[in-house]
Each structure stands twice: as structure tokens, then as C-alpha cells.
Amino acid sequence: MDSLVVLVLCLSCLLLLSLWRQSSGRGKLPPGPTPLPVIGNILQIGIKDISKSLTNLSKVYGPVFTLYFGLKPIVVLHGYEAVKEALIDLGEEFSGRGIFPLAERANRGFGIVFSNGKKWKEIRRFSLMTLRNFGMGKRSIEDRVQEEARCLVEELRKTKASPCDPTFILGCAPCNVICSIIFHKRFDYKDQQFLNLMEKLNENIKILSSPWIQICNNFSPIIDYFPGTHNKLLKNVAFMKSYILEKVKEHQESMDMNNPQDFIDCFLMKMEKEKHNQPSEFTIESLENTAVDLFGAGTETTSTTLRYALLLLLKHPEVTAKVQEEIERVIGRNRSPCMQDRSHMPYTDAVVHEVQRYIDLLPTSLPHAVTCDIKFRNYLIPKGTTILISLTSVLHDNKEFPNPEMFDPHHFLDEGGNFKKSKYFMPFSAGKRICVGEALAGMELFLFLTSILQNFNLKSLVDPKNLDTTPVVNGFASVPPFYQLCFIPV
């Protein structure tokens, strides 16, 4: 009986604490739906499609509103004006990374994606500088992407125009580009180590996009005490870190300090320079996690976009025909596509942009946080508050993009057929937390897609009208449904 009384008292205290925290903070924060004790607004949000729920709530509470995930307040920004004001106009104040408990377990605050403060700034600055020195957006990395595009075309030829699921092959190409940047090595598509790495990356994007992960991140005790797919994700990350550590040891034994070959060499050189400046942010643990982040951000996002792009091109054969006509006119058949071609191919450029806009790969991006107490639109948001960005509300804005739910390359073309930029184009987020590999991803999408369409016609196994382009999961990332196609050599 005594234990029951204690339990009831504990629960009562928890409920009172929950109510007090919510009521004391709500006077400062933007308005929002009334949260339930302990669980907050979790029942009012469709976990399978958070973005749709945010759109519905914005119609009631406006472009800036507050939700509670458990006891934790989260300020939501919906629509271009609110997102721009926060991420661009007040970029420094909104540059923090929001709480992501599962990532905390995986990387302990290291790396480039989930770190904060001085650690994040130094690692991000170093990573950007190193990638630029190796030619991100310049010639040397373009050579690597072109080489991988040629290998991709050869792998597709091996399908002999038979029906195939493109998931694996389209994942190999961007993964190999990242391998060449980090390890100075590309792998054969049949290499077992490479296959294991690909498998872990593919599993992780599916797990991260599941409703279960949303629950884990908002009720963090689940991570330590409950079984579930989150444990598989943590094991996959541990596998990748151990693999990278092996490569780091190989580099330490063979590195030429006067001739760095890749990202690992550059990081080890930085560690050597910083060894007298303790404590340094440049450690082996930081290198492991930064490399894992580059793999995660640079492989599955690009391969998922490529997979979605081919599905949309199957669905819209008239678009595919126009792209192939432009390829034939500008590039021809006797040389590989290059980035200089893009400025002469406005329709193809528009298609690449429209694919990214339409699929809305990361509907709410990753959570941000404010780095200080900030007054925002007459609300006071306390330091450390998590900020949720609705990228969907920007990419699918119906004023900027008429009929935003329709796939239409003319969203990025003017009346004369010239490519038209849009400030609403934010597939990689915006501001200080914009994806480090934005330029690389854009290069890969253009070169891989043009190389495929230069060499193959795409054949659907069903009537294009019957192809479903609805994402199968739409949590962290929008993942396309399973499909097969035939690559018919031109």
C-alpha cells in the first residue's frame, strides 16, 4: 500500500510540474494548442506526416506557434517570411542545433551535424575549407563525379535492359564520391566492405524516417530501456565508426604531411598542428563522427533524390523527352556531361530543381535551437528552445509555385524558357546551418541524371499514369515507394 501511495504522489508531482512548466512558459512563447500533461501535443500531431499537421496548425495559430513534445516546448516556423527572418536575418541567433537524443547517444555531441557552439563552428569551418581545397564546386571533385558517372552508366548497362530496382546502384554512385573525398578511394560496386557500408546507410535513412524515431526523440528514456529499431540505428553508426577508425589508422601509418590526399589526411594534419593548443576540438573521436556525418549527409540524401527523380521522369515521359532533346543538342553522344553545360541547359536545370522542390526530401529539416534569449515577432523565446522549420511550407508555397503539388519544371523557367532562380528554393535548409555539401549534391544530381539520360531511355513496367509517387515514409525524410524500371541503351 505504501508503495502505491508513493507512486501516486510521484505521478501527481510530475503532472503538477508539467502543468507549471507549460503555464509559466506560455506567456512568453508564441500561441499554440493546449498541451496535455506529460505528453504535450503529441496526440494532435500525425507522426506519419508531421508536415501536414504543421500546415493545419498554422492555419489556426499563424506562421509562428508553439507545440509541446512531452514536456519540451518547440517553436514552429511556417512559411517563407518566418523562416527567412529566423535563419537568414537572425542567422546567428537561430544557428543552434536542437535536442536530438538519439544523435546524442550516437555521437556524444561530436561531428558537424549535431554539434553546437565553438566545437560546431570550428569543425564546420575546417570541413568547408577542406572540401573547397579539394575542389568542391571546382574541377578536381567534378572529375571524381564524372568518373563515377561513367562507372554508374557501365553498371546500368550490365542490367541488359531487364527490369531492376535502382535503389542499390543509385546509392553506390554518391557513396563512392564521398569515399573518394574521405578515403581517396572508390570501391567496386561488388566489394563486400562497400556493400556493408551501403547497407547500413540505407537502413539508417529508413529507420530515421519512421514514426518510432519521432517518439524516441521526444521521450528519450525509451532509447535506453525499450527495444526497437533505434538500437539497430545505433549499432549501424557504431559499425561505421569502427570502419572509419580502421581507415584512420591506415592513414596514420602512411600519411605524407607534405601531400595530403583526402579529408582524413587533412584532419590528422590539423590534429598535429593543434596538439599544443589544448583542449582542441580536433580529436580522433571528432574525426570519426565528422566522417560519419559526411557519409550520412552525402550519400543517402543524394541517392534518395536520384531514385525519386527517375520515378518522376517515368511518370512524366514528356519531361524526359525534353531533357534528352536538350542533352542531344548541347552535349551530344561523344563526350561526358560537365558542369559548364548546365548554363546552356535551362530546361534540365529546371527539372533538377523541380525534383528537389517537389519531393521535399527533408520536410522539417533537422531541429534548430536559439543560442540566446531572443525577441522574435513580439515573442520571447528562451535560450536553448528547439525550433522546428517547415521546409515544406517554403518549397510548396502556392504563391511562389502555382499548383505546388504538381510536378512542373516551369516553376523554374521564365516566359522565355530561361532558368529562373527562386529564393524559396531551400531543399538544403538556409542560413548558417545550410548543408555543407550543397554544391557537391547539386553537381552530382546534374551529372548523374544527364549521364543516365544521355545513355538510356527509361521504360516503366506499368502505365506511367498508374505510377504512385507518394512517399512511403514522410517523417525525417521523404522516401519514394518501391518501383522497377528498364534502362534501355540509346
Rank of each mutant, 00 (worst) to 15 (best):
Leu7Ser: 12
Gly417Tyr: 09
Val355Glu: 01
Lys421Tyr: 11
His396Tyr: 15
Arg307Ile: 06
Met257Cys: 09
Cys164Val: 12
His276Pro: 11
Leu388Met: 15
Ile327Thr: 05
Arg97Phe: 05
His396Cys: 06
Asp191Asn: 12
Pro337Lys: 02
Leu391Met: 11
Gly135Val: 12
His276Leu: 14
Phe94Leu: 07
Tyr189Arg: 03
His410Glu: 15
Ser280Lys: 08
Ile123Lys: 05
Asn277Cys: 13
Lys235His: 11
Leu395Ala: 08
Gln356Arg: 05
Lys200Cys: 10
Ala441Asp: 03
Leu268Phe: 06
Glu285Lys: 07
Glu85Tyr: 10
Pro163Gly: 05
Asn116Pro: 04
Gln261Leu: 14
Leu312Pro: 00
Phe226Met: 11
Thr386Asp: 05
Lys322Thr: 13
Leu71His: 07
Pro279Asp: 15
Thr348Pro: 00
His368Leu: 05
Leu102Ile: 11
Pro480Glu: 02
Tyr308Ala: 07
Cys179Leu: 03
Thr371Met: 06
Arg21His: 12
Gly62Arg: 00
Ser209Ala: 09
Ile42Gly: 05
Val6Asp: 02
Ile264Gln: 03
Arg433Asp: 10
Phe412Thr: 00
Val394Gln: 10
Tyr379Arg: 03
Ser220Gln: 08
Phe187Met: 07
His230Leu: 08
Asp143Leu: 11
Val5Lys: 01
Tyr189Ala: 03
Leu449Asn: 00
Lys249Asp: 08
Ser478Pro: 09
Ser242Thr: 12
Gly98Tyr: 15
Phe114His: 12
Pro489Leu: 00
Thr392His: 10
Leu449Met: 05
Thr392Phe: 06
Ser280Thr: 14
Gly111Gln: 05
Thr302Ser: 13
Ser343Val: 13
Asp341Cys: 03
Phe134Gly: 15
Arg26Glu: 09
Ile389Asp: 02
Phe295Gly: 00
Cys151Gly: 07
Thr130Arg: 12
Asp143Gly: 09
Met136Ser: 12
Leu36Pro: 04
Leu57Val: 13
Ala149Thr: 04
Tyr189Cys: 03
Phe456Leu: 02
Glu288Pro: 04
Val76Met: 02
Pro30Ile: 01
Ser162Leu: 11
Lys190Met: 11
Ala106Tyr: 11
Thr348Trp: 04
Asn277Gln: 14
Glu328Cys: 14
Thr159Asp: 03
Lys48His: 15
Lys52Trp: 07
Glu148Gly: 00
Lys270Ser: 09
Asp468Trp: 04
Ser286Tyr: 07
Asn474Val: 07
Lys459Leu: 07
Ile182Glu: 01
Ile387Phe: 06
Pro33Arg: 01
Thr385Val: 04
Asp188Pro: 09
Asn176Ser: 02
Thr66Arg: 03
Val370Glu: 02
Ile99Arg: 15
Ser422Ile: 05
Phe412Arg: 01
Val6Gln: 11
Ser422Asn: 10
Pro337Met: 03
Asp463Met: 07
Thr229Glu: 13
Glu250Trp: 04
Lys315Pro: 00
Met339Trp: 12
Val462Leu: 09
Leu87Lys: 04
Asn204Arg: 04
Asn289Tyr: 08
Ala430Thr: 14
Tyr61Val: 00
Leu77Arg: 00
Phe482Ser: 13
Val479Ala: 13
Val490Ile: 09
Ala309Ser: 14
Gly431Ala: 05
Leu43Arg: 06
Leu313Tyr: 01
Ala321His: 13
Lys59Ser: 12
Leu208Pro: 04
Leu71Asp: 15
Pro101His: 14
Asp360Arg: 09
Ile141Gly: 02
Glu203Ile: 06
His276Thr: 08
Leu208Gly: 07
Glu438Ser: 11
Asp89Trp: 05
Lys160Cys: 12
Gln44Pro: 05
Phe126Gln: 03
Cys216Gln: 07
Pro363Thr: 08
Thr385Pro: 00
Arg144Leu: 14
Glu199Ser: 09
Val60Ala: 11
Arg108Phe: 14
Pro73Thr: 06
Leu90Gln: 14
Phe482His: 08
Leu447Ile: 15
Asn474Asp: 05
Ser365Asp: 10
Phe183Ser: 04
Phe267Asp: 03
Arg108Tyr: 14
Pro211Gln: 08
Ala173Met: 01
Leu195Gln: 15
Glu92Thr: 10
Asn378Lys: 07
Leu361Ala: 14
Pro101Lys: 05
Thr302Trp: 01
Pro367Leu: 05
Gly135Leu: 12
Leu54Arg: 01
Leu77Phe: 11
Ala106Asn: 11
Glu281Asn: 12
Lys459Gly: 06
Leu310Gly: 02
Leu366Ser: 05
Arg307Glu: 01
Ile387Leu: 08
Pro174Gly: 15
Asn133Pro: 14
Tyr61Asn: 03
Asp349Val: 13
Ser53Cys: 10
Pro402Arg: 11
Val8Ser: 10
Leu306Val: 04
Phe134Lys: 15
Phe219Glu: 01
Pro260Tyr: 07
Gln22Trp: 14
Glu285Ser: 12
Phe219Ser: 04
Leu234Thr: 09
Glu122Asp: 14
Lys158Gly: 08
Gly442His: 15
Ser115His: 10
Ile169Leu: 13
Thr55Leu: 08
Gly62Ser: 02
Gly416Met: 08
Phe110Arg: 13
Lys459Ser: 07
Phe428Lys: 04
Arg186Gln: 03
Lys315Gly: 04
Glu300Thr: 09
Met271Glu: 05
Glu85Gln: 08
Glu199Ala: 13
Ala149His: 00
Phe134Asp: 15
Ala369Arg: 15
His410Cys: 15
Thr304Trp: 07
Asp49Pro: 10
Lys232Pro: 03
Tyr424Phe: 08
Val394Ser: 12
Leu461Met: 09
Pro409Gly: 01
Pro464Glu: 08
Asn378Arg: 11
Ser162Asp: 15
Asp373Arg: 03
Leu311Lys: 01
Thr229Met: 13
Phe263Ser: 04
Pro37Cys: 03
Glu272Cys: 13
Phe419Glu: 04
Asp397Glu: 07
Arg125Cys: 12
Leu9Glu: 00
Tyr483His: 02
Asn133Cys: 13
Lys206Gln: 13
Arg186Ala: 02
Lys28Asn: 14
Gly70Ser: 03
Glu203Leu: 07
Tyr68Asp: 03
Ile327Asp: 01
Gly70Phe: 05
Leu361Met: 14
Met136Arg: 15
Leu445Lys: 02
Val60Pro: 05
Gly416Tyr: 15
Arg144Gly: 05
